[in-house]
Amino acid sequence: MNGFVIWLMILLGLAEVMVKRRTVAVGLVTAQALILVGFAISEANSIDRLIIAGALALRAFGLAFLYIYLIRRTHEVTPVIASIGPLSRAGIAISLSLALIWLFGSTTLVTPDTSKAVLVLVVFGVVTVITRRATLLQVLGIVLIENGLALSALVIPGGSSLFIEIGVTLDLILMSLVASAFHFRIFSEFGTANAGALRSLRD
């Protein structure tokens, strides 16, 4: 896997952390997924690989449509603003991922670059969940984590399991569907799809 693709993935992830509009965020994770599709096809050596690419593409488009549909159905009167500004978010994300890479030391997947990229994407996803309040963006944070993991699954030696890959795809779709059901209900109950409003359960 060449460095350009990896950096592209990381930059898209960083943009995801910083972005303001939900639509753009959906576009970014979809773009990441499409890069993965491209990567899977370019290195395809068996029919399994092609099926995996198909599954990834299906999930990329399927989720994109689902999210866009959600955004259109739940129009926020006032946009849900993150608690921390975009630059600080990027700062936190980058410093956390650098720290984690350092802590991991020599523990790597096949190539050090991919391994670091996976770590960075996972951290970016977690930071998105931590810092964003819009419910959809929190789901996108998890999609970001899964994109990173899909990347790692593609480069694992010994071949990734078709069964598992399709399973992960289905799982992500299932999780997104459940999340959208919640998103709708939260929007209709609270009048805004803002996870910051969900603070009545505490001790």
């Binding site: 956390l96 802590l103 931590i130 309040r133 001790d203």
Partner: peptide
């Protein structure tokens, strides 16, 4: 008891904090 602040963001931060502390 303030740990249970009700904010999803802080709960997610505990996870990353846990991983960091353990590592």
């Amino acid at each position: 008891r303030r740990v249970q602040s009700g904010s999803l963001g802080s709960y997610a931060a505990y996870l990353i904090g846990l991983i960091f502390v353990l590592l």
